[in-house]
Amino acid sequence: MPTRFVRTTRSLAHDGGRRPLIGFLAAALLLAAWLAWFLFGRVTVYEISRQARLEVQQSAHPIAALVQSRIATNPLVLGQEVRAGDLLIELDAQAEKLRLKEEQSRLETLIPRIASLKKEVAALEQAAARERAAAQAASQGAAFRTREAAAAADFARENERRLKEESALGGVAQIEAVRAQAESLKLAASREALAAEQRRLGTEAEARAFQQQAQVESLRRTILSMQGEAQAAESTIARLGEEIERHTVRAPVSGTIADVAVLRTGAYVAAGQKLATVVPHGGLIIVGDFVPAAVLGRIRPGQAARLRLDGFPWAQYGMIDARVVRVAGEVRDGLVRVEFEPSQHGAGRLVLQHGLPGSIEVGIEEVSPAQLVMRTAGRFDTPLPAAAPMAARDLTATQ
């Protein structure tokens, strides 16, 4: 009698346990490999910045008005190349310029007046010296005349005495003795007059000297007063010059005008108002802002990083390799600043320039997947304070 289901019976006869066994062995090997990778493999842990941007190595210089005034000239345009010290914007300083001209005119009149008074003082001093010499000569002449009169008076007295003696003896007439006495008295009076004249000449010379000295001192006081006015005018001129210079906005560094306020001629600006921004020439760096918990003690100089630019999809343009060069030690606005040096050959088709935004990720350590899972589970189990900001999540990538 023929057997039913011949094909089924034959298939069951040929079917054995080899194929399931091979499948189980392959699954076991895959599971063992996955467990080995999970326990002993290494993955890189990345921290992603809250924000990042390209900046020049020297900080961009904002330009602000130092005083409140009106715009006199504003020739600035975006992208303009400037050099340090170039005049960028001129504010109205007409009142200060008028005062400056006034003080300069005043100083110009004071300087020759002071020079003229100094010449007058010198002339008076020379005249006083000559006056003293003349007075000394006149005094010496009066002294000589006084000595001459004294000698004549002495001779007259001696002649009077001798004639009196001879008159008493009858040798000469008595009238001769009287005449000799009168002559002696005359010469004595002349000597006294000459002595008085000598004293008068000395007194007048001293009075003229005092008068000339007083005149010289008066002129010197006037000179000192004018010199004080000249110094005050010079100080005022210097202050007005500085004030006028404060009305001129100059480029602090050489670079490119990256931002300009829309201000037309005649517009009013306040002190401290930002007018433009100058981006200096130089190499570019990457600046990233991280939460403190992700940076402090974890990111160090020399670590590798990758920058993704917001305007250039990384799948098409790739990422820019970089390395950490500096890490700030203080928190500002709840974030920590980290500076990176971009790779010289990492830009590819990108044209890097100041201000490009993006995000940067830093490889901070390598751990096994098991450690990473345990660490993540520990974070989920630990409640965060209500006011604490959420930290950036760890991203992993296999080597």
Rank of each mutant, 00 (worst) to 15 (best):
T73A: 03
F340R: 04
L201G: 13
E47W: 14
V291M: 15
G346E: 01
A156T: 03
A122E: 13
A328T: 06
R337I: 03
P75I: 13
S225V: 06
V216L: 03
K186F: 13
L309A: 07
A189E: 04
H14D: 09
A93M: 07
I360Q: 04
L169P: 05
A142E: 08
R306L: 08
A65L: 04
V336S: 02
G202W: 03
P357V: 08
A95L: 07
V67Q: 05
A182G: 11
F38C: 00
A127K: 07
T382L: 08
T203F: 12
G85S: 07
R250C: 03
R10Q: 13
A143H: 14
R145C: 08
T73V: 06
V67R: 02
L163A: 05
R220G: 06
L117S: 08
E339S: 08
G272H: 06
L98N: 01
R106E: 10
L35A: 09
R221C: 10
A149H: 07
S235W: 12
A258I: 10
S69V: 05
A182L: 11
S190A: 15
Q303C: 02
T265Q: 15
I257K: 01
V278L: 08
V172L: 02
T109L: 14
G255W: 12
G17W: 08
A205V: 07
V279T: 08
R113L: 05
A230F: 00
A143P: 13
H14E: 14
I320Q: 00
Q140E: 09
Q273E: 11
G85A: 01
F210T: 13
A28G: 15
Y317P: 06
L185G: 09
A138E: 10
A134L: 11
I223M: 04
P389R: 07
Q213R: 15
A84I: 07
A214H: 07
R161A: 15
V82G: 11
Y268S: 15
G348R: 06
I360T: 02
Q212S: 12
A93E: 02
V362G: 01
G16K: 10
A27T: 06
V269Y: 02
D321Q: 06
A143L: 12
L30P: 08
A271R: 13
A173Q: 11
I48G: 09
A195Y: 14
R221G: 11
E341K: 06
R326Y: 12
G241I: 05
E120A: 10
